[in-house]
């Protein structure tokens, strides 16, 4: 399987994502919504698996490849949030965001490059990037929470329920744990591949900034439960930093000598 087949799988998967989101709200029988979301995930999951097999390497080298996993984990994270905490609206939101990433991948056709440079051929490669993708997906869900709350506050002048922030806290604690794991796996890998666990490479520095931003959020929440506006604002800012760390960095001057720019 290659990128050539991707639009078909993406379309089918997107259709199920949308149908699932609609069913969750309209159908009395929960089964339909659940079945559609799971099918959508299965279709995209199948593509990832077959794509992996066709490439003979883990499809996590280029940005397009990471977007692919993201579109999978984001919906998975949203759906699990719904199952675990009963938050329904997170499902259509995460599906919508995943849809955007699927479309991005269709619009910007990726190189079908099978080569994988020696530095990336490591047992750390898969855990490092997959853990990051899971973390990014869960933290995106928390950013959706903050975006919704900020929207309600500024445009409708309404205050959101306290439970919403509790949900954000839960998502951040999951996301932060995975973020820490990703950072640490990266450090261990760097020691094996490049001789040192930390070199202030721009990507590392941005990853650290992302971690620090969520660290600030956690401390603020630990001490100042009542200041909710600040919490939502921090959550939003943290996600902006995360986006820069993920792909915004490719447009920064400091990234020119990064070991992480594999895409070109």
């Amino acid at each position: 399987m290659t990128w050539l087949e991707f639009p078909y799988f993406a379309a089918v998967s997107a259709l199920f994502y949308v149908a699932g989101s609609v069913f969750l709200y309209t159908s009395k029988n929960k089964l339909w919504g659940n079945a559609a979301i799971i099918t959508g995930l299965a279709v995209l999951g199948t593509f990832i698996g077959a794509f992996w097999a066709g490439l003979d390497r883990l499809p996590l080298r280029t940005l397009g490849e990471t977007r692919l996993w993201y579109a999978f984990f984001l919906v998975l994270a949203g759906y699990l949030t719904y199952l675990r905490w009963g938050i329904k609206w997170i499902v259509p939101y995460s599906c919508g965001l995943a849809l955007m990433f699927l479309i991005l991948n269709i619009v910007f056709v990726e190189a079908h490059d099978k080569t994988l440079m020696p530095a990336l051929q490591s047992p750390w490669f898969a855990p490092h990037v997959i853990v990051y993708m899971i973390s990014y997906a869960v933290l995106a869900a928390s950013a959706l929470v903050s975006a919704k709350a900020l929207f309600e506050m500024f445009f409708r002048n309404r205050h959101v329920n306290d439970d919403v922030l509790k949900l954000a806290d839960n998502l951040v604690s999951v996301g932060f744990t995975f973020l820490s794991l990703g950072l640490i796996f990266g450090a261990f890998w760097a020691k094996e591949a490049w001789g040192h666990y930390w070199t202030w490479d721009p990507k590392e520095t941005w990853a650290l900034l992302t971690w620090l931003a969520y660290l600030v959020y956690i401390h603020i929440r630990f001490r100042h439960k009542q200041n909710e506006n600040l919490a939502y604002f921090l959550l939003f800012i943290s996600f902006v930093v995360l986006i820069v760390a993920w792909f915004g960095i490719n447009y920064l001057p400091s990234a020119a000598n990064s070991v992480h720019t594999y895409s070109n």
Binding site: L212, S254, A256
Partner: peptide
């Protein structure tokens, strides 16, 4: 760290 992330070291 932000300064280090923006200005090439």
């Amino acid at each position: 760290a932000l300064a280090m992330a923006v200005v090439p070291q």
